[in-house]
Amino acid sequence: MSTNAYIKYLTQQLVEYFNLTKKERKEKRLHRKEDKVQGMSHWFGIVPFALSMFIRKTIKK
């Protein structure tokens, strides 16, 4: 991507952002937060979760 195209893209994004009302910006931010995957599975997959379940199961027995 050339420098001019990048600057044009950034300008368009800023203009779109500033055209939104404060309430719309807040809602957009909240939706982005809700869509994020939380926890260790985001970084390492399901393996740490499976191991923790296995360890808890063996400790209880």
Rank of each mutant, 00 (worst) to 15 (best):
14 L>W: 08
48 P>F: 00
42 H>Y: 15
58 T>N: 14
7 I>N: 06
18 F>M: 09
48 P>V: 03
10 L>Y: 03
26 K>Y: 15
38 Q>N: 09
23 K>F: 07
4 N>P: 03
1 M>K: 11
34 E>Y: 01
17 Y>L: 09
49 F>N: 08
61 K>A: 10
43 W>P: 00
23 K>P: 01
45 G>V: 07
56 R>C: 06
48 P>I: 02
29 R>S: 15
28 K>F: 12
2 S>I: 11
3 T>L: 11
21 T>N: 13
40 M>I: 12
53 M>V: 03
10 L>S: 03
16 E>F: 02
18 F>R: 09
34 E>S: 13
17 Y>R: 09
46 I>V: 04
34 E>W: 04
11 T>W: 09
7 I>M: 07
33 K>L: 13
5 A>E: 15
53 M>H: 05
23 K>W: 05
61 K>G: 09
37 V>I: 14
7 I>K: 10
20 L>M: 14
51 L>P: 00
26 K>P: 02
42 H>W: 05
49 F>V: 06
30 L>W: 02
51 L>F: 05
53 M>Q: 06
7 I>W: 06
56 R>K: 10
26 K>D: 14
13 Q>M: 04
60 K>C: 04
7 I>H: 05
32 R>N: 12
2 S>V: 11
57 K>Y: 14
48 P>T: 04
58 T>F: 02
14 L>N: 06
14 L>I: 09
2 S>H: 14
44 F>Q: 12
30 L>C: 03
54 F>W: 10
4 N>H: 09
